[in-house]
Amino acid sequence: MITALIILALLALGFGLLLGYAALRFKVEGDPLVEQIDALLPQTQCGQCGYPGCRPYAEAIANGDEINKCPPGGEATIKNLADLMGVEAKPLHGGSTEPEVKKVAFIREDECIGCTKCIQACPVDAIVGATRQMHTVITSECTGCDLCVEPCPVDCIDMVPIKTGITNWRWDLNPIAIKQVD
């Protein structure tokens, strides 16, 4: 009886030491969770999640907020976040299921009064212009966050869908005979 106990105790000790050693020896130096989450977010900085930017939302997720509050990221981002956080993917908060179309802001330049409001609103400094000078959007930098549309006093900013060109064509052969039968 005593022997058995001793053996068990020794075994436990031995395995414990082994595990402890392994934990130290094979320690994985990973990115902090917030960084990982932030890397998955689309960085539109649009604030539609209720946080002022993507990183604050990443921090919020790390602290237990829902993962489905990012409309620009859409399903794909939710899925990635679910994988990372080890939770179930959920439908987008607010429930819009329409496929997200990438958009960029476009300033109708002859209507622009040069008020700089959109410049101040842009989270990524993608609008150039000076006071009373016409503004314009640097399309390649625009994240399509929508934040400049509201402040414009003359409503001269449109969100236009990014055009499909040969470089971002996704091999959508519309009439192709790919019908799933199984």
């Binding site: 091999w171 052969l173 009439p175 192709i176 005979a177 790919i178």
Partner: peptide
């Protein structure tokens, strides 16, 4: 006239 489009 529509053309038959398919992938190779």
């Amino acid at each position: 006239m529509t053309f038959k489009v398919a992938s190779s």
